[in-house]
Amino acid sequence: MTKRGVVTIGMILVGAVLMVWSYFVGAAPWCATGVECSNPRVEWAPALFVLGVVVAFSSALYYSIAKDK
């Protein structure tokens, strides 16, 4: 596989992992009401989620734009 493909898939994966991790782990965990659910476990986790989206979709940019060697 080309480096382009690797990086692209890598970015998608990183993005996906970021999204999944921040959504299910980093943000407020899956409890309905407890006090612990009012704070994300990791602050700025929602931003990381958005970052994940950004990274994942940026892969398309990279894939398209990256110069051939």
């Binding site: 407020a28 309905a32 009401t33 407890g34 006090v35 659910c37 009012s38 704070n39 994300p40």
Partner: peptide
């Protein structure tokens, strides 16, 4: 509490 987008509303 469930709908609060920022966790400003919380249940002690």
């Amino acid at each position: 509490v469930k709908v609060c987008p920022t966790g400003a509303r919380f249940h002690r």
